[in-house]
């Protein structure tokens, strides 16, 4: 049971909204799980706690048996547990090339950093054309690609993706989601995908968790969740 991401009884006190209460769930290695819920349901709070940005008030979380709690975000990142935060997590003042380099800055295997960089640029050719530009000159979709690209260069194993669709046009959203699905297969990633955009997320996910007011209210395979009429109207917005 210690394989993959195990979260048990996890609570974060965070004022009245955005808190999470006694969450327990399990993600197997290689799974893509969508975490769905309305604004303020506690989705971001949960992954901020899992990636070491905030300290939970109780409970535990582990990845392949190693506890995530009490570790700093930078140390987790160096173990392949990478959190791409909400709203295009790039550094606007740096160039595209520098943002990418940041993903491999701490890695010893510089040869593999170079290989990962080449792979990333072939996955996102639009970045290859903009290497010298500052990241704040990119469009929203390009910035999201850059954030994902930077994560790929650090050879992640477990990816926390916070609202990659936020503020993007529908066509771009589809493209980003398709890419996430493809990357997960190509690199054998385990992904926890946080989304308000429930349908798009569930379409590429194996399973879904539905969070409401900081508590898990439903979970199941994507097909089950989409088929459930009550969930559809209450949480999936269809």
């Amino acid at each position: 049971m210690s394989e993959g991401l195990v979260v048990s009884n996890l609570s974060v006190d965070f004022g009245a909204v955005n808190a999470v209460h006694e969450l327990s769930f399990h993600i197997r290695p290689g799974e893509l799980v969508a975490l769905i819920g309305a604004n303020g349901a506690g989705k971001s709070t949960l992954i901020r706690a899992l990636s070491g940005l905030i300290t939970p008030s109780q409970g535990m979380a582990s990845w392949n048996g190693v506890s995530l709690i009490g570790q700093k975000p930078e140390e987790l990142a160096r173990q392949g547990i990478v959190h791409i935060s909400e709203g295009r997590a790039v550094i606007p003042e740096l160039t595209v090339s520098e943002n990418l380099a940041l993903g491999g800055i701490w890695r010893r295997d510089k040869k593999d950093v170079e290989i990962a960089r080449e792979q990333t640029l072939s996955i996102f050719p639009v970045l290859a054309a903009r290497l010298g530009q500052r990241a704040d000159s990119l469009s929203g979709g390009e910035r999201q690609m850059l954030a994902i690209g930077r994560a790929l260069i650090s050879r992640p194993k477990l990816l926390f993706l916070d609202e990659p669709s936020l503020g993007l046009a529908p066509l771009i959203i589809e493209e980003i989601f398709k890419t996430i699905g493809a990357l997960r297969t190509q690199f054998g990633l385990t992904v926890l995908l946080v989304e308000q955009n429930a349908m798009s997320a569930l379409r590429i996910a194996d399973r879904g968790l539905i969070l409401n007011l900081g508590a898990l209210v439903a979970s199941g395979t994507s097909d089950e969740l989409i088929a459930d009429p009550q969930l559809r109207s209450a949480y999936l917005g269809i």
Partner: peptide, 24 residues
């Protein structure tokens, strides 16, 4: 240099730098 990049990243956006693995 890598150190310089880390210094700049940490000063512009410490949280993003941290999540990228920079020991801020």
């Amino acid at each position: 240099t890598d150190l310089g990049l880390a210094l700049r990243a940490a000063s512009f956006q410490p949280e993003i730098a941290q999540l990228a693995g920079v020991r801020v």
